[in-house]
Design a protein around this nucleic acid. Structure first.
Length: 275
DNA sequence: AAAGGGAGCAACCGCACCTTG
DNA sequence: CCAAGGTGCGGTTGCTCCCTT
């Protein structure tokens, strides 16, 4: 079909974002909200591709992002979800509030993969490597069957269509019911989830509260202790059931009564914006 | 102290899906 | 129904930092 490039390649800057560019993007999003990424660079005065702006915002500038290494509980959750969902990082990220698909993907490739290999577990199939070798050509275990199911939805490009038809949403978004009622989970996994639960009640509630995508949930700044601390840290007041974005769309940045942008910049700079 | 290599991470690329006219 | 534009996702690249020699 010969699609046009997403942006005019000429005069479009690439590479690491500068603090100035970040500031412009944050200011624009907080003032106008997220809409029409293609138009964002022009309106925000950035010589960047709209895609690049979206990526920068969703992965690094969003005020609800957690930074730093994944906790043990988060890591366990990623492993468990990866066993079920495969490399569908966005789906996995949706169940880890404040984490992005890119971050999880990177963490998986750099840390978890190695960890699993060290433990003798195949990071692709989540089967013990030795066991795999002996079971080659034999009837797959129930867990391996899980992966077949996962792979069937992961690898076929019609997967999102299935989701739209409500097929995949049964296997993913209703993960909780799958976990509890279907043979998706064995005793070991059940115990694992329980341990995750003990470690991080919030994460578990996210895992089993599937009605609302967590990526949206994470915008809400719930008033539990951890989030309160986080809000304080980045200088946000605590709001109940309001999304930051909605507020940002309704009011200009300065209507917040605090310098949100500079706080976010601080957050960004503190967390390794290498410039 | 300097060089080389590896690890980690930010960002880009290309493809596929979704939406709209 | 089809084509084109917009968006999101996963894979990959390349830069930077840190550790080892």
């Amino acid at each position: 079909m010969g699609r046009q490039p997403c942006c005019d390649k000429l005069g479009v800057k690439k590479g690491p974002w500068t603090a100035e560019e970040d500031k412009k993007l944050i200011n624009f999003i907080l003032t106008n909200g997220q809409c029409c990424w293609r138009a964002v660079p022009k309106l925000a005065g950035l010589r960047r591709c709209g895609k690049s702006c979206r990526l920068r915002w969703t992965n690094y500038l969003r005020p609800d992002l957690k930074r730093g290494l994944l906790t043990d509980a988060e890591e366990q959750l990623v492993i468990d979800l990866h066993a079920r969902l495969g490399n569908r990082w966005s789906k996995i990220a949706a169940r880890l509030p404040g984490r992005t698909d890119n971050e999880i993907k990177n963490h998986w490739n750099t840390h978890i993969k190695k960890k699993l290999l060290k433990m003798g577990i195949d990071p692709v199939t989540h089967e013990p490597i030795n066991k795999q070798a002996t079971e080659d050509g034999q009837t797959p275990s129930s867990h391996a069957l899980d992966h077949q199911m996962v792979d069937n939805t992961t690898n076929h490009k019609s997967q999102s269509q299935q989701e739209n038809d409500g097929i995949s949403s049964n296997s993913e978004d209703n993960l909780s019911s799958s976990l509890n009622e279907n043979c998706y989970i064995n005793d070991d996994e059940s115990r694992l989830l329980e341990s995750i639960c003990d470690d991080n009640q919030y994460l578990l509630s996210c895992l089993f509260d599937d009605e609302t995508p967590l990526v949206d949930e994470s915008w809400k700044f719930p008033s539990n202790c951890a989030d309160q601390d986080y809000n304080n840290m980045i200088g946000l007041p605590s709001w109940d059931n309001n999304t930051l974005l909605m507020d940002c769309q309704d009011f200009g940045v300065h209507d917040f009564g605090f310098d949100c942008v500079s706080n976010i910049e601080m957050n960004t700079l503190q967390t390794g914006n290498k410039l």
